[in-house]
Design a protein around this nucleic acid. Structure first.
Lengths: 264, 264
DNA sequence: GCAATAATCTCTTTTTATGGGATTTTTGCA
DNA sequence: TGCAAAAATCCCATAAAAAGAGATTATTGC
């Protein structure tokens, strides 16, 4: 049973938090147990969330996420500066290589793919749009961690230490920091089969106004299609894309219309 | 300025309501004006919504919908019984005809496409996934209205009367009711270029547990590809799909595992 | 139609959300 | 780098409204 801290606003929104890939459907009974809310309170919350369209329920089946989510997703695709600026680069990357290109956002201790495009027959990524990715493994995670300010980095290393060590980044936090410094110097991260066996990931960070990284541009490609030379070639393109997206974001920040820049 | 009725739960969620295609990005100033909340209150709401991931803000740019939306959309695709049961039928329909096949949900006075598949080169529908559709025009709207219980139908006719008349359903509410009765008898609705010029829509309703309609299965196809005979042929398939989805939904309702039925 | 379950209602107590105004932080620009 | 303007947050007395126990009503399954 989750501790129900926070105010009533947080408590309503906490209802949305319990929906996960392992538990897509919840009965009121289960929710009471999980969240520790009283019966009337829970029903009030559910009523509100359902009226907002965030939840639906089939008669006597449990509650699931509701159609408002679909509507918001549509609007988000039209408004998210990262997606708007990044998708052209995904197109470009997938045209140049037989690969999947991804835009991955870092938020709240999660990595989340927000857009992806594939130029391979089997576009089944282990982490399609919307599915949170592991923090410790893969080029994406590393490309972001490498550029994190120390005070954000250290706790993250603590949390994901086992994975980071397993992947060969180092046996102590300090060794890992050193490895990440090299990634930082290179400006991009490469991973061989860390997320999906046989697949190479090449990722570079996207910055929001020159501060800390908020996302990553990544290309995943079958290992047998690349070697040291081609990886370097691709990494240049990935870095270029990431840099351009970063610049577009910082322009947007100052209220500059980037439309003409993007479509050139 | 919107009247801010309701309790604080509704007021937080009302913030999500103001995001629309015409206004994808909001500054706190604009939100205060629009929602009529005091400054501290609004900032509290925004803080909560941002922490929940439902909103994001770039430094000094306005607020937009946040990454949690993407995550929820992924989960919804995996949990929505309508999508889960319907997508196989969309696949079937698009394989049989050069068309776009849609799954459209009716909720809160809106029609919302929740899934679609196209077998034509130019899959640019005017109403892609997540974009609310007009209530008065098109086969989808009519296929649902025709099966609405009278007490739901009449207010809906009032609201959309102008559109319904423009489309030729009748010049008085009673005439429209008569037209809809014919649709009901046929079990499906056809529309010629009502939503997109030159495009024919053929739609049949999906029911939740035999009660009122909650969604519609629709095929849109270029007008020059069909005639009276083929439309009838397609409508049979569309009706079949809608019926099967309805049945799957009512089974699910009773807790029956429909997996084996669907994959056969 | 009837028992069992699910959802809603009632009402008082306690908790907490609210907003005016002051304060602090951030930003834009010289 | 520093300074004025704007944005965001804090403080706190007051008013408001959530919360929950238990009773009540509505649904459901059979």
């Amino acid at each position: 049973m989750t501790k129900n801290g926070g105010n009533s606003l947080e408590r309503v929104l906490a209802v949305l938090e319990v929906f996960s890939e392992n538990h897509l459907e919840w009965t009121p009974e289960e929710l009471m147990e999980e969240l520790g809310y009283s019966r009337p309170t829970l029903y009030r919350y559910l009523k509100t969330l359902r009226e907002a369209g965030l939840l639906t329920s089939m008669p006597n089946a449990g509650f699931t996420l509701g159609p408002k989510v679909v509507e918001m997703d549509y609007l988000l695709r039209k408004s998210d500066a990262l997606i708007l600026n990044g998708s052209a680069h995904l197109k470009n990357l997938t045209e140049r290589y037989s690969c999947t290109a991804l835009l991955v956002r870092w938020y709240g201790d999660k990595l989340l793919c927000v857009d992806s495009l594939a130029s391979v027959k089997n576009p089944r990524s282990s982490y399609p749009r919307g599915r949170p990715m592991p923090l410790g493994r893969g080029a994406i995670a590393r490309s972001i961690m490498a550029f994190l300010p120390r005070r954000h980095l250290m706790p993250m290393i603590e949390r994901t230490f086992d994975e980071l060590r397993a992947v060969g980044l180092g046996n102590t936090p300090d060794e890992i920091v050193e490895s990440l410094k090299r990634v930082r110097k290179a400006g991009y991260a490469v991973a061989f089969g860390e997320v999906t066996p046989g697949v190479v990931g090449i990722a570079a960070p996207v910055f929001d106004a020159g501060q800390s990284p908020i996302a990553s541009v990544c290309v995943t490609i079958a290992g047998h299609l690349v070697n040291g030379k081609t990886i370097e070639e691709i990494s240049l393109e990935v870095r270029g894309a990431a840099t351009q997206v970063s610049e577009a974001l910082s322009l947007h920040r100052h209220g500059v219309d980037t439309t003409d820049i993007l479509t050139e």
